[in-house]
Measured scan of single mutants.
Amino acid sequence: QWKVGDKCSAIWSEDGCIYPATIASIDFKRETCVVVYTGYGNREEQNLSDLLSPICE
Rank of each mutant, 00 (worst) to 15 (best):
A10M: 06
K29I: 14
R30W: 06
Y37F: 15
S9I: 07
Q1R: 14
L48Q: 02
S9D: 07
C17I: 07
I55V: 11
D50M: 06
D50L: 05
W12P: 01
Q1G: 13
G39D: 10
N47T: 08
E45L: 07
D50A: 09
R43C: 13
K3N: 12
C56K: 09
I23A: 03
V35Q: 05
I26Q: 00
S53R: 13
S13R: 10
S49K: 13
V36R: 00
E14G: 15
C56A: 15
Q46W: 07
R30G: 09
S53Y: 11
E44Y: 05
C33V: 12
G39S: 09
P54L: 07
S25A: 09
P20Q: 11
D6L: 08
C56Y: 15
D6V: 01
D27L: 05
T22R: 06
C56H: 14
D27C: 08
V4W: 06
V34A: 01
K7P: 09
Q46H: 14
Y40N: 15
T38M: 11
I55M: 13
S53T: 08
D6A: 00
K29W: 10
G39P: 10
K3P: 15
E57S: 14
G5R: 00
C17Y: 09
G39W: 14
D15H: 01
P20T: 07
Y40W: 13
T32Y: 05
K29H: 12
Y37D: 02
E44P: 02
Q46R: 08
F28M: 11
L51F: 03
T38S: 09
D50H: 07
Q46I: 09
P54T: 09
G41H: 07
R43G: 05
S49H: 09
N42A: 13
P54C: 11
T22I: 14
L48A: 02
L52D: 03
N47M: 05
S9P: 07
A24W: 12
G5M: 01
A24L: 15
Q46G: 05
G5C: 12
E45V: 12
F28W: 15
I18H: 02
E31Q: 15
W2R: 00
N47K: 14
V4Q: 08
P54K: 06
P54D: 06
N47Y: 13
K7E: 13
I26G: 02
V35I: 12
Y40E: 04
V4P: 15
E57V: 13
E45C: 07
C17R: 15
Q1S: 12
K7Y: 10
I23R: 00
A24G: 06
T32G: 06
T22V: 14
I55G: 12
V36C: 01
N47L: 13
W12N: 11
Q46T: 06
S49C: 10
G5Q: 06
D50P: 02
P20L: 11
S25E: 12
S9T: 09
W2L: 12
G16I: 08
C8R: 00
E14A: 13
A10K: 03
D15R: 09
E44Q: 04
R30D: 09
Q46C: 03
G16K: 02
V34L: 06
Q1T: 11
T32K: 05
I26A: 03
G16P: 07
T22W: 10
R30Y: 11
W12S: 14
N42E: 08
R30P: 06
V4C: 12
Q46N: 05
Y37R: 01
P54W: 08
K29N: 13
A10T: 03
N42L: 14
S9F: 15
L52W: 04
Y19M: 04
D15C: 09
L52G: 02
R30K: 13
I55W: 12
V34R: 00
F28E: 13
L52C: 05
V36Q: 12
L51Y: 03
S13L: 08
Q1K: 14
K29F: 13
I55F: 13
E45P: 05
V34Y: 03
P54E: 04
C17G: 11
C8L: 00
W2F: 05
V34T: 03
Q1Y: 13
G16F: 07
E44T: 03
A21R: 01
I23Y: 03
T22P: 01
V4N: 07
G41Y: 03
A24M: 14
L51M: 04
I23V: 07
L52R: 08
P20N: 14
S13Y: 09
S25G: 04
E31R: 14
S25V: 09
G39C: 12
G39K: 08
Y37Q: 03
K29A: 13
S13C: 06
K7W: 10
C8K: 00
I11Q: 01
D6K: 00
T38E: 14
K3S: 11
E44K: 00
W12A: 04
P54N: 04
I23Q: 02
V35H: 01
E14S: 08
E44H: 02
S49D: 08
G16T: 01
V34I: 14
D6P: 00
V4R: 00
I18A: 08
